[in-house]
């Protein structure tokens, strides 16, 4: 269990940095981060299922200017780790436990938004240090201050991961005996609903004229084709 948590933390750190601070090659997207975590922990299909459900949820929230979206990266990673660890501990398999972990993790994604906000606020201190380093004529110190910014983003990523994980480890084992049976009636539909809600939000916010008309036409055409073939 400890090694799973540690591997999860390592992936959360790397993906968390890719999200804002370095590279932006999108390994931070849930469709990549969750399967990667699950692959490292030995159950890649669980990550793929989580990735499908989370990927589209906040995709419409663009990281434009000073806007900070909820941390879907840590939601995906932490719920994958939770799903795998608790699946082994509670001896449960199937989509119900994954859904419960995810539904606990999703609201905690807001914590990530606050921590990310705080990291960016904290980084303002670096500016003053850079200004004074330049006044002293030290370019090296000024360069190092820029790299220090990575520390705040790393702490925000790891902090979010830890909070979601802790919340899940405390809440899921309590709720699981109560919700296991009722959730089995609707789990397949909830699994379908999460990406569809994400798509609906994208449709509502994407800046395309007649987006809904275009979507409905594409949906109907594809549906009819699948029906006929």
């Amino acid at each position: 269990m400890a090694s799973s948590l540690a591997f999860g933390a390592l992936i959360s750190l790397i993906c968390g940095l890719d999200r804002v601070a370095i590279l932006q090659i999108m390994i931070s997207r849930p469709i990549v981060a969750a399967p990667l975590t699950a692959f490292v922990l030995g159950e890649p299909l669980i990550g793929l299922q989580i990735g499908v459900m989370v990927e589209l949820l906040w995709l419409a929230r663009l990281p434009v200017g000073a806007a900070v979206p909820p941390d879907d990266t840590q939601v995906a990673i932490a719920s994958t780790v939770l799903g795998i660890i608790l699946g082994r501990t509670l001896n449960a398999s199937g989509i119900e436990l994954l859904l419960l972990c995810l539904l606990i993790a999703i609201p905690l994604g807001k914590v990530g938004q606050y921590l990310d906000h705080y990291a960016r606020q904290y980084n303002i201190r670096l500016i003053k240090q850079v200004d004074s380093a330049l006044d002293r004529g030290s370019l090296l110190v000024a360069e190092l201050q820029h790299m220090r910014g990575l520390t705040s983003f790393s702490l925000a990523a790891i902090g979010t991961y830890a909070i979601i994980l802790l919340g899940g480890l405390l809440i899921v084992p309590l709720l699981w005996p109560l919700l296991q049976q009722p959730m089995s009636y609707s789990s397949a539909w909830v699994q379908l609903a999460l990406p569809l809600v994400g798509i609906a939000v994208i449709l509502g916010t994407i800046n395309v004229s007649r987006a809904i008309t275009l979507f409905c036409a594409s949906f109907c055409m594809s549906f009819l084709l699948m029906w006929l073939v």
């Binding site: 370095i22 500016i127 790299m147």
Partner: peptide, 26 residues
């Protein structure tokens, strides 16, 4: 690739832009 490592609400990517250009300015 490290442009946003010190992203902040006051100067946004300012420090990162300076950090990136510095080898050229030198």
């Amino acid at each position: 690739l490290l442009l946003q490592a010190s992203w902040n609400f006051e100067r946004l990517q300012g420090l990162g832009f300076f950090y990136s250009l510095l080898p050229g300015l030198k």
